[in-house]
Design a protein around this nucleic acid. Structure first.
Length: 209
DNA sequence: TAGTTGATCGTCT
DNA sequence: GACGATCAACTAA
């Protein structure tokens, strides 16, 4: 968790990246950088954990039962942020995937703080460990100033985007079932970077013989 | 360390 | 009227 990153060497991820099947986009987001500009601050986090939510095929998806006012962004142009409010107090952020008109999104579950750490500490509380600043979907929204106003934001703009280094070797990836859902529990649509301390929960340890 | 619980309100049935 | 893609604080052991 260094507070420096050679931003010049990174390229913004373009729309065709998002306009693909959700299960392809999700694992490829790992190791890329979430870049947020707000209130004169530059915030960067390395994406270390995501979950794929498909549309009408996925009972755990907000879009399973079709389009509503809340989930409308999921049905729109790929490469936008779908932000929703939950549990009466938290926000979670997704990136919209699939072609325009088809619902799909990737939930950002955890990022590793890279830049703007002091700002994130102030938002999250001084007693919070650095590795806990953004190791959960609602925590990262708090740290990165993501709320209702950011719903529908274009990821190709300046306020919010994803950047990737060229020629970066893909990180070692783990995969598991999704967290906090009661349906579609069999689908292993959670992807994370193995052994990264900022992943929200360690993988279930399977007893070995 | 693991498991339980209260907080709090928008969204959908 | 029920519940949720969560979190932090608490309890027990």
């Amino acid at each position: 968790m260094s507070d420096a990153l050679p931003l010049k060497r990174l390229r913004k991820v373009r729309r065709p990246f998002y306009a693909r099947p959700t299960l392809q986009v999700a694992p490829e987001l790992l190791g890329k950088y979430l870049v947020r500009r707000t209130r004169g601050h530059l915030l960067i986090g390395r994406i270390v954990e995501v979950e794929a939510y498909r549309g009408h095929l996925d009972p755990a998806s907000h879009a399973y039962r079709g389009r509503t006012q809340r989930n409308a962004v999921m049905f729109g142009e790929p490469g936008h942020a779908y932000v929703y409010f939950t549990y009466g107090m938290h926000f979670c952020m997704n990136f919209v995937t699939e072609r325009d008109g088809v619902a799909g999104a990737v939930l950002l579950r955890a990022v590793e703080p890279i830049r703007g750490i002091e700002f994130m500490r102030r938002r999250r509380g001084s007693h919070v460990n650095d590795k806990d600043l953004s190791n959960g979907p609602a925590k990262l929204c708090e740290a990165f100033v993501i709320a209702r106003e950011q719903n529908g934001l274009d990821l190709l703009g300046n306020e919010l985007c994803v950047m990737a280094g060229d020629g970066q070797s893909p990180p070692t990836m783990g995969r598991s079932t999704r967290i906090g859902i009661r349906v579609a529990n069999d689908k292993r649509w959670r992807f994370y970077i193995k052994r990264n301390p900022c992943v929200s929960r360690p993988p279930k340890v399977r007893p070995h013989r």
